[in-house]
Amino acid sequence: MTITPIARASQARSLGRMLVVRVLGTIGILLVLSIIVFSMLHLAPGDIVKNLLGNRASSPEAIAAIRAQYNLDQPLYMQYLIWLGNALTGDFGQSIRLQDSVSNVIGSRLGITAALSGLAFLLALVVAVPLGVQSAVRSGSWIDRFATGFGIVGLSAPTFAVGLLLLYVFAFYVPIFPVYGAGDGGLDTLWHLVLPAITLALGLGAIILKLTRTAMLRELETDYVTFGRARGLPDRQVHLIALRNAAIPIVTGASLVLTFLVGGTVLAETTFALPGLGTLLQGSVLFKDIAVVQALTLLVAVTIAIIALLADLAYIFLDPRIRAKESAQ
């Protein structure tokens, strides 16, 4: 028999080893990215000192101060190591545009962006998963047609275009939602976030819907669904079996959702003039406020890496076959 306690124990051990490998791989990719992000400072067009001075006067003292602050007289690899060391402790330097430390600038805007993405993600999940399941189960019905149409438009419509359309409708015809800014905090801010969140949720929902529908359609055609029906399981239970199996490809698609979320947040914030990280990035890019851009890029990369790692873990948790295969290696 293959299911001895010993086999289980060694399975758990090699699962641990596999986890370590994944984590190391992620750290590797992040290191490579950090080098790219660091070199942005040196690769940006124009004189590096002038870029760092921004609008300040370029007196010899100011130049000397900048050279000292950014260790520009050290060898390149030392500059990188110092920069990385500072970054790891949360010190990304000064924003030349906002005249404040980068961590302060980011910290003050993080809340809005987190609330916006969280709200949009929740909204998309609550609508798209049930809709995807129903559209697969009743393939060809009006609900399926509606879902398919919604999926295509949602995937194709750029977030800002949807945002502008909503803005137009709600600003001029149904003025129930505020259309600009973030409000005065608390419930008022939440109220201000409704339209941007719907805008963002449309694209997110379309991706989740498509993933769910495709995965469910595939699962519903499998033998174990037929066998479930053949031995008299109720429809609900059969659909749950299919959804449990479909969860694997759906979670695997999480990276797709995340990628969309990051880009979409920038566009939604810009469209609705929300003072979040997205508008901060856009402003900093156009102003060439490189320290902020570097910090934001790294922040996003780390967030994505962590979530991708969690998705991988969920994947292993969801699929016992992967557990067996991984531990067999």
């Binding site: 990719i29 990215l33 942005m40 690769l43 940006a44 067009p45 995340l258 990628t259 969309f260 990051v262 880009g263 979409g264 920038v266 566009l267 990035l281 856009q282 890019v285 156009l286 060439k288 490189i290 851009v293 890029t297 996003v300 990369a301 994505i304 890496a305 991708a308």
Partner: peptide
């Protein structure tokens, strides 16, 4: 590992 739009904004914008 980097979102497409973010990478495009950063690289195209900064350069």
């Amino acid at each position: 590992s980097l979102p497409l739009l973010l990478a495009a904004i950063v690289v195209a914008g900064v350069f």
